[in-house]
Computed example of a mutant assay.
Amino acid sequence: MQWPDSIRLREVGPRDGWQSIRQVIPAAYKAHFILQLGRCGLREMEITSFVSPRAVPQHADAELLCNILQCTDRKQHTPVYSALVINSIGVKRAASSGMTNLAAVISATQSHSLDNSGLTIENALQELSAIHHLATQHGITLRVAIATAFGYPGKEDVDQQHLQNIVEHIRNLGIGEIILADTAGLAHPRQVYQTVQSLKIMFPGITWGLHLHDAHGLGLVNVLAGIMAGVTVIETSLGGLGGCPFLPGARGNVATEKVVFMLQKMGIHTGVSLKCLEKLSEQAPHLQIT
């Protein structure tokens, strides 16, 4: 096979990595750390979520953080900042804060959809249509992450036909980027490769990405399997921080510095300084406040 010349990395630590930390991190410190990530060459970052402060207290300061960072991707050389939303209220808050890129989440399994958003998949897809309509009105670019795309522990396997129906709904809205998320950390390389390959064939023109949790030490090999199948976006978290707060045992994301090291060794360009990341990651562990 022919390896790609480059891969887009999206740092999700400020959103996914910090959301489960109990002690609230000051917004000024968050902004400082995000700016440091940018100086390492990361050009895309998911920095917060516009969700209920009761559900995710860590991101209750989303508007304040955006105000500090002056969240916009219109300034030359500024990283593309994005945030996660799960409903139209979140889109309105994000638009008022100057965000121009958002990620919405749809679950591939009914159990996780109910646990995560309180909605059935069918109702969540209806909400996604409303989110997309509102985002379009505000000139916001929307991507979609499909959570539990590779399974939900002890409850459900992912029905491939059902997954395809979800993707078709997203594609029909005109959304051009879809992230397949291994929320539970259950994925293995063969599954990742086959899932990505089949969806890529069925839905040409979509930009495919992966959001992987490293619960069983398969994060890097799953990244590799995804790249072999044609993904061009990998979401990572510095120091491997992260995990779904509504899914016990969903340990951290695949570490940004490990992915950069592997891709650099393979001659795949990321635009990110490994030396800078390694130095910055030394500051990350103290954020794991319990």
Rank of each mutant, 00 (worst) to 15 (best):
A184Q: 06
Q76C: 04
L125I: 03
E156H: 00
T120G: 11
D115R: 03
E44N: 08
I25N: 03
V223W: 14
L163N: 13
I206W: 04
S113G: 09
A95L: 13
M99P: 04
L287I: 06
Q164G: 02
M266A: 15
Q288Y: 14
A184E: 07
D182N: 01
D16E: 09
N123R: 14
L42W: 15
G90A: 05
L65T: 07
I131V: 14
L128I: 08
P189M: 04
R8I: 00
T270F: 04
M202I: 11
S82A: 10
P245A: 00
M262K: 11
E177P: 12
Q137S: 13
T207R: 05
Q58G: 07
G98T: 10
L65E: 02
I166T: 08
P57N: 10
V233K: 12
L134Y: 10
L238E: 07
F33P: 10
A31G: 13
D159H: 07
R171I: 00
F33T: 13
V24N: 05
G176T: 10
T120K: 05
A83R: 12
L241W: 09
A145E: 03
G13Q: 07
I268G: 12
I89S: 15
K200C: 00
R39Q: 15
L128D: 01
H211Q: 05
A284E: 14
P248Q: 03
L128F: 03
E257D: 11
I21A: 07
G249T: 13
L173G: 05
S88G: 09
I47T: 01
R43D: 09
V192A: 01
I68Q: 13
V192P: 15
V12K: 07
P14E: 09
L163T: 14
L224M: 10
L210P: 03
D61G: 08
K30T: 10
A103H: 12
G249Q: 03
Q197W: 02
L134Q: 01
S49T: 06
E63Y: 07
A215S: 12
V223C: 15
Q126T: 00
H59C: 13
S113T: 00
I175W: 14
A124L: 07
D214T: 08
G230H: 07
L186D: 05
H112A: 13
